[in-house]
Structure formats: structure tokens, C-alpha cells
Design a protein around this nucleic acid. Sequence first.
DNA 1: GAACAAAACTAACGTTTGTTAGTTAGAATT
DNA 2: AATTCTAACTAACAAACGTTAGTTTTGTTC
Lengths: 190, 190
Amino acid sequence: MKARTRKEEIIIVASRLFKEKGYNAVSMRDIALAMGIKAASLYNHIQGKQEILSTLILEVAQEFTLGMNTVMLSTATPTEKITSVIELHIDITVNYSEGLAALNNDWMHLENDDLSDFVKMRENYEENFRKIIKEGIEKEEIKAQHPEVILFSILSTLRSLYVWYQKRGKLDVNILKKDMVAVLLNGIVV
Amino acid sequence: MKARTRKEEIIIVASRLFKEKGYNAVSMRDIALAMGIKAASLYNHIQGKQEILSTLILEVAQEFTLGMNTVMLSTATPTEKITSVIELHIDITVNYSEGLAALNNDWMHLENDDLSDFVKMRENYEENFRKIIKEGIEKEEIKAQHPEVILFSILSTLRSLYVWYQKRGKLDVNILKKDMVAVLLNGIVV
DNA sequence: GAACAAAACTAACGTTTGTTAGTTAGAATT
DNA sequence: AATTCTAACTAACAAACGTTAGTTTTGTTC
């Protein structure tokens, strides 16, 4: 994500700080300092601290919703759909790594409609994923294990990816996709 | 974890609040209110807010270190060792769910020696896990995939378990262990 | 060069924060 | 009965918080 306006610059700088210390541990003065200006000057561009958080999170959340809807509308097999979802997560991780951190760690600090909208989107996303897995079990593509364990296992790996992706110096996205799909679908034992 | 002293009561109440809102979003007055006393009264039992956090986190961290050391000293095969580590995580999740939340989300708010001790323990833990996986690949028990992808995949699933465990009303621990091991080792496709 | 808008500034506001000091009520110990 | 201990209290602190108001600087357009 590149900054096209001053407002976007602020959001990008803030997201970097949020990622390191969390929303509540970052003050408006911290953000201003990182921008090289005074805290009051931020208010020429944004309405408040909350706006930074909600802009950041809801942008990424919509990206997920959009991607999942596309997958659900396709005629692919359940296994192919799961593969698509894994790839979707990796693409978003690469492009919105800071926003993802806020989404994962600070969503509970959203307020009012932003909070309830987010929670709804999240529940909807999980419900769609659950449908894919259950369909896979019915069609005997997926092992008849507890679907919740499968859902949770894949989803929590994908959600943590942002932490790990740039710690291990930016590997090739296509190789990462291939490896992740292999590990998550086929396991690790020979 | 049961409260045996007033200090432990405070730590338990605080950990519950930390889990919901994060360390920085919980004030000493919040903790005091949840205890039914005034904020200043907390200081008869604890040294400060930091002490709550470090007690909470380092207790759990030591539990992990201890468990991992036991696994490393055993003569089990790599696959068996991975199974033991998975079971270790599940046991700790069940017994220290609130502390785990703080460990996962608020470790960066530790200070001084507590912070560096924690980071060292964490690195050490990951390094041991990495050794097990590499040994498994050498002995051809584990697929010769990127070991980092395998490590990350399993570890992030296990680390997120605390979020999910009590949302899905407390299932039987032994069944959970069996299912998790199956999914993480053998994958999900038929 | 006057007029304008954008984006910075200084100064201050009312709250909330973690914490300290000193005090008090009740229970346990001598 | 006197003393000590435990655990609560009130009051207050300096610092940090998000935010507002009003002003000055900077760069662009007539």
C-alpha cells in the first residue's frame, strides 16, 4: 500500500507502530513524532485516532470478504476452494501486512458500528470456510474428522502468517503458496 | 490455577481482563473494580502493574521451557517428539488459558530483564522445535519440505489454540489431542 | 503581489493513568 | 487488654492522554 495523500501517509506510519506495540500503547504524539510533525497537526488530516484504526482494519476485512465471496461463487471442488482460500490469505498478507496486524490484535478496540460490522464480517467468513470443509467431507475429499479442528487449524496458521512472513526475509510468494498448501492439506509425515 | 493468596486473586482477575482488552487497555482502576476494592488497595499486595504481567507471562513461559526440555531429553522418535509437543501445548492451554493470552499478545510490554528473558526462552523453544523437525527430515519420518514452513504452521496453530478452546465449549482433552495430532501430522485430504 | 488553501505550529483543555502517602477498621497474636 | 498484622480506605501527585482553538507558515493560483 502506497501513500497517495497525507492522510494515507499517517495511516501507514501509524499501522507500523500499531504492529509493534499495539493500538493502545501508541499515542498520537508517537505517530506525530514518527511523521516529523506535532500531534495537533495530525488533526488537519484525520478525524481522530479511532479513524486510523477503523480505516486500517475495515479495508483489510473487506479484502477478505471480497476474496471469499469470489471463491464461494466458483464451481471448483472443495479441495480447490481451500487451496484458493490459502492463496487468498497469502496474497493479503503480502500486500497488507501492517493492516493485518491491527485486524488480528486490535479489532476489539473498534467502536460502535465499526466493531459490529467487523464481527459480522468475521463470523461470515468463518461460516463460509466451514461450509467448504463440510462439503469436502460429504464428497469424501476431506477426512471425516471434527470439521472445527480442521477449520481452526488452517485458519490460525493463516492468520499468524503476517508475523512470520517478514521475519523470515520475504520468500518467493509462489513457493510459499505451494509449500503452505502442501503442509496444510497433506500434512508433514512421510 | 486457583487463588491461594490475595495476590494470586488479583493476578487471576487481571489476567481475565487482559485477555479481553489487552494489557494497556486495562487500568489499575479496572482491576480494582473487578475485585470490589479501590485501586490504591491493590498496592498492599503487588508492587505494580508490571509485576502482574511478568508474573503471569513468565510462569507460563517456564512451563513451556520445562516441558520442551523433558521432550528433548527423551529417546523418542522425532514424530513422537512432535506429538509430545502438541500434547504439551494442549495441556498448557487447558491449565493456563488466561496467562497464554498475555504471553501471546502482551509479551512486548514486559520490561528490562523480564523482556529479554522471555525473548530468549521463546527463541530457545523455537530452536528446539526446529531441531526436532530437522531430525525428522534426516531420518525420513518427515517430508523434506521447507522446515520453517512446517515449524511455523504447527506452532501458530498451537499458539492460537487458547482463543478457540473455550469458545467451542470445552471439549474432551484427549479427543482434542488425538484430532490435533492427526490433522497436523497427516493433513486433511483423504 | 494579493488572495487563497493546505498544513504546519503553539497553547491549552479536561480526563485518565500508575502510583504514593498517610489513615482506619477489624482480626489475630501476645 | 495491648499489640501487631492485614487489608481496606481517602486524598492527592505528576505525567501522559486525545483533542480543540486559534495562529502562523508555506506554496499555489489569479
